[in-house]
Each structure stands twice: as structure tokens, then as C-alpha cells.
């Protein structure tokens, strides 16, 4: 009896210690699906005694979450909105923006499609619904099926700003839950087109196309027209020391940069 009590007490103690050294990171699916979990693993392997809690449910959740517990980190694939900044100001908090990495959004088509390249104008036409048939852009005749992210996604908005001149998506576009689902549908539909993060472009059955003659390759990040930066957001003055250390490491360390590159982004330090 005494022994088990001692174990219980020990467990409670351990839990207490853990609770202090835990970094909670929430937000974007683009960052949180692969990059941040892998960074966290590597960070732990490097001998840092710390635990992570990572939840990736979309960029907007980063800010709602940060408001509730300012000690943590938010991930976002878009810039913070004015209305979101206001909510923080109202609580006397100020946001700090860390560039996590750069991302290129790949326009992908089915592997069987004859299309290898589109101009940015054609991409805009396809996603706004002005162009509805592949024959209009030099492919075999067939109605285009357009797959996009859903409206809450940061990628949805960034793509609109970078590739569609902020015009609205066409009514015929289909809103998918995530990168994975878009890749899946495009891979199964010979007339499909969609956009996914760089990390998803190599999936079976799809191929990224060149936009304005620029191939989707990390080395072309500067010329490729649909590229953006990814962010970590934190609250000034409230961030724990451990989390600060982690963020500095994640954005500057060479090993971290390797991870960032491996999951298909371009490290912030470059």
C-alpha cells in the first residue's frame, strides 16, 4: 500500500514537472501536419527535456487559442487579420510574428493529363470559373473539375490573393477538407485540378505544373508566382523561456532547416 502510494506521488510529481516544461502549439494544418511535429521530435532528441502538445486545425484557431492562453505558440499560414489583432489589443496583448518557413503552393493536375504548364492568368481563369474546359488551355477536351481548400483555410485565402487577383472562387469549385483530400481527388479524376502545399505535390497520381514557365522546385522559390511565408505567432512578454528557446532553434538552427526542407518547405534562414 505504501509503495503504491509512493509511486502515485512520484507520478504526480513527474506530471507536475512535465506540465511546466510543455509547449503547446496550435493552428495551421499546413505547418502542423508534418513540419512542427518533426521539429519537436528532433528538438527532444537533441537532449531537451520538454514535451509538446500540437494541434493542427486551421490558421484561425491559432489566434483564438493564443487569446485563451498567451503562453503558447500559434501557427498560421497567413498573416494575422486586423480584427484578430484588435482582439489581442483589447486584452492588452501584442503579437509577435516569427517567420517559420516559406511555402510554395503547387497547382496540381492528374498525372494522366497532357497539361504541363499554365500561365498565372489561366490559373486565375480556371479557379474563378471563366475557363471551364481543358481544351481552352491546350489540353484534351473535357470539363475541368476544380478542387480547393475550404473557406476557413489560410491557403484558401493566400491562393486567392496570389493567384486569383483576390477574385472570388467560381461557384463550380469543390471545397475539400485538406491538402490530402485535394491530392486524393485530383489523383482519381483525370480532369481534376487543385492546389496543395509543396510537401504534397509528390503524391501518387498527381503532378505539379509549371506556372508562368517556372517549375515548382524549391530552388525557384523566388520566381515562382504562388509562394508565401508561414508564421509562428506568440504574445510579447508572455512566452515561456523554453518555448522561446525552441522557436529560436526552429527558425535558425541548421538541423531544423534540414527538417523544414525535408517536409517540403524552404527554411526561413535562406
Amino acid at each position: 500500500m505504501k509503495k503504491s502510494l509512493a509511486i502515485l506521488a512520484l507520478a504526480a510529481l513527474a506530471a507536475g514537472v512535465n506540465a511546466e516544461d510543455k509547449i503547446v502549439i496550435k493552428g495551421s494544418d499546413t505547418l502542423g501536419a508534418k513540419m512542427v511535429p518533426q521539429l519537436a521530435e528532433l528538438y527532444k532528441e537533441a537532449g531537451n527535456e520538454i514535451s509538446f502538445e500540437i494541434a493542427a486545425e486551421g490558421s484561425s484557431t491559432a489566434f483564438t487559442h493564443l487569446q485563451a492562453s498567451p503562453a503558447d505558440v500559434g501557427m498560421s499560414s497567413r498573416n494575422v487579420k486586423d480584427s484578430e489583432i484588435e482582439a489581442f489589443t483589447a486584452k492588452g496583448m501584442e503579437l509577435k510574428d516569427w517567420t517559420a518557413a516559406y511555402d510554395m503552393i503547387g497547382v496540381v493536375v492528374n498525372e494522366k493529363s497532357g497539361i504541363e504548364e499554365l500561365t498565372l492568368e489561366q490559373v486565375e481563369g480556371i479557379f474563378t470559373g471563366d475557363i471551364t474546359d481543358w481544351s481552352e488551355v491546350g489540353g484534351d477536351a473535357g470539363p475541368i473539375s476544380v478542387y480547393t481548400r475550404n473557406t476557413s483555410s489560410g491557403t484558401y485565402k493566400s491562393f486567392q490573393e496570389m493567384a486569383m487577383q483576390k477574385r472570388d472562387y467560381g461557384a463550380d469549385t469543390q471545397k475539400m477538407a485538406g491538402n490530402e483530400q485535394i491530392a486524393e481527388e485530383v489523383a482519381k479524376n483525370a480532369n481534376g485540378i487543385g492546389y496543395v502545399g509543396l510537401a504534397y505535390c509528390e503524391k501518387d497520381g498527381i503532378k505539379p505544373i509549371a506556372v508562368d514557365g517556372v517549375e515548382l522546385e524549391p530552388k525557384n522559390a523566388k520566381e515562382y508566382p504562388i509562394a508565401r511565408s508561414l508564421h509562428y505567432y506568440t504574445v510579447n512578454g508572455k512566452l515561456s523561456e523554453a518555448a522561446t528557446k525552441f522557436l529560436v532553434w526552429a527558425t535558425t538552427d541548421e538541423k531544423a532547416a534540414e527538417v523544414v526542407e525535408r517536409v517540403g518547405f524552404i527554411p526561413a534562414s535562406e
Binding site: 484588435e86 489589443t89 483589447a90 486584452k91 492588452g92
Partner: peptide, 13 residues
Amino acid sequence: ARRAALLAGVEQT
């Protein structure tokens, strides 16, 4: 709302 947010911030910090 923006003004109110800033004023609330003044109180808070």
C-alpha cells in the same frame, strides 16, 4: 470597437 479595444488594453497593461 477598435477604440474600445485600445482603451481596454490601456486598462489591462
